[in-house]
Amino acid sequence: MRWRLRVVHTTGYRYDGPVAQSYNEARLTPRSDDRQNLMVARLETVPATRAYKYTDYWGTEVNAFDLFTPHTELKVVASSVVETTGQPLPAVDASWNDVRSSESVDLYAEYLEWTSYVPKHRELTAVARGLRKGRTPQETVLAVSKWVHDTLKYQRGTTGVHSSAIDAWQAGEGVCQDYAHLTLAMLRAVGIPSRYVSGYLHTKPNAAVGETVVGESHAWIEAWTGEWWGFDPTNDLPIAHRHVWVATGRDYADVSPLKGIYSGGAATAIEVTVDMTRLA
């Protein structure tokens, strides 16, 4: 099945006091690969800015924009049209020896690293090792994702942008970002190179053409078991036409959709919406 989707992602900020200067980077442009084709993408801001585009180390398209006129509100609208398809489980299922060979360990070293979002944890490692027993690497990815899906309860508000996999695990609940980080922590514990994916999820499997639904910013993982492939631990789902991917990295910090600095009062997000329309 092939879908054509329009994604309109709006983020609004309000500041306590006027902000004189702000420097920002948005990582909101979907990428193209064999599963997904980007047709058009645009970034607009209010107040208007001139964006500077570049591709970062991870291959993500970055829109950098600066503001110099005092403002109390900022709105960022990223819109794009992409074509997506599903992705069958890869036919290649490398052996544990392949996955842990010194070549793969060297090549994918960054995706085996511990980070502040994905820290090493003894107990979690033990669980992951238990899940690995008797399974191939590919089966292990599925089993770990399932375990994370069953272990965490989807709940907003418990964790924040800076919560680590361990925070979420100990709280027993979290959002997609936490599901992804926890999965990464366990996969890396058993030596499977794995990375964080940010993107969008269309929430209605049987949407009609032309129907606009409320989508969401989403995160899932990709693992290397002979080749890279994605899986969605939040929903315990393979990656399919409802997933639109934007960026990959070691963890959230490498792909954070909107980051920047400004001088002035504290900011609150007043509006975050993702409208997704199936066009074909």
């Binding site: 900020y13 942008v161 600095i261 400004y262």
Partner: peptide
Amino acid sequence: WIEWNNAEVNL
């Protein structure tokens, strides 16, 4: 000195 704030907020 400008004190910068991190624009990242909880969504």
